[in-house]
């Protein structure tokens, strides 16, 4: 239920295995061989980064809270497990997901405002008619089986901040990592508390290189190699570490019932996101924009 993740629709209906997710995406791609050939798209990882950037752009225009953005991102991801990207206008889908997320997170914006702002962001692709967005909302809700309430890791982070005596800046960094997890498939694969613990693990145990300063909200600068992550994870599991506070966290990891394997898997997912993200840069953005633009234009979406 709303307060209880274990009885929530997210756990009961919207959590899946990696294998199932991969299979679902394969099936969607295979639905129309010709369209698949004619309209190549970047890898979903790159598209995720692009969608995230675009949602943040739109969200900024309406001073959207991070939680609503996170909800919108999960809606996008859920929708595209049911519908082939190539059958949609992704810009309209992004705007619709944000419009609905704003309502569900209790900070609604009028449909007219959302459409106008979306048109400022994507004048070539965003339909001006509000009825188009409203129609897309029906499609979105229907594909999500009306399960609209989403559990995010932020709440667990706030709770664990106290238990683990995290500093404000650690909390801030961890919540940036949570933001970044929205750019991955993790919210479809793991419960929010596992992602929260991963974010803390990354923040406290693996420490982002301090020379990089604070995380950017769109592009994170966290630099850790997979090898370092694996080593630190092993270290944490074996609870050998020097500093006291770190020890406290590590002890907690060891004694808690958190599934360390899941944490390591999530850690690796986030680290590989950062790697992709680093290579994404301007060219990645350009190719996403061009391929999606061509798709929307030529298919008349």
């Amino acid at each position: 239920m709303a307060a209880n993740y274990w009885a929530s629709s997210q756990r009961l209906h919207w959590q899946m295995s990696r294998a199932k997710l991969a299979e679902t995406r394969r099936a969607l791609d295979a639905m129309d061989e010709k369209v698949f050939q004619d309209f190549p798209l970047p890898h979903y990882r790159l598209l995720s980064i692009y969608f995230n950037q675009q949602l943040i752009r739109l969200g900024r225009r309406m001073q959207t809270r991070q939680q609503a953005l996170a909800t919108a991102q999960l809606y996008v991801r859920r929708f595209y497990t049911k519908v082939a990207i190539r059958d949609t206008n992704p810009y309209l889908v992004l705007a619709t997901c944000l419009y609905l997320a704003l309502k569900i997170e209790e900070c609604p914006q009028h449909i007219r405002i959302v459409v106008n702002e979306a048109r400022t962001c994507w004048p070539e692709y965003m339909p001006a008619d509000t009825a188009k967005l409203a129609e897309c909302e029906f499609w979105l809700i229907s594909e999500m089986n009306s399960f609209l309430i989403v559990h995010h890791p932020y709440r667990t982070l706030r709770e664990l901040k106290i238990t683990l005596k995290l500093t404000d800046s650690e909390e801030e960094t961890a919540s940036q990592v949570i933001n970044d997890s929205c750019v991955t498939d993790l919210p479809l694969l793991y419960p929010p508390h596992v992602i929260a613990v991963t974010a803390i693990f990354l923040t406290v145990v693996l420490k982002p290189s301090s020379s990089m300063g604070a995380f950017g909200s769109s592009v994170s600068n966290l630099r850790v190699s997979s090898a370092a992550a694996a080593a630190a994870a092993a270290a944490a599991a074996n609870t050998m570490n020097a500093q006291e506070r770190l020890q406290h966290v590590v002890n907690w990891f060891a004694n808690s019932k958190v599934d360390m394997e899941a944490i390591i898997d999530c850690t690796q997912e986030i680290i590989s996101l950062y790697e992709v993200w680093e290579s994404y840069s301007a060219t990645g953005e350009k190719s996403c924009r061009e391929m999606l633009g061509r798709l929307v234009k030529q298919r008349g979406l």
Binding site: M1, A2, A7, L100, K103, I141, S146, F147, L148, I149
Partner: peptide, 11 residues
């Protein structure tokens, strides 16, 4: 929206 979202979770 609220009614849809909440009723879908409640049991």
């Amino acid at each position: 929206c609220r009614e849809m979202a909440l009723c879908s979770e409640l049991s």
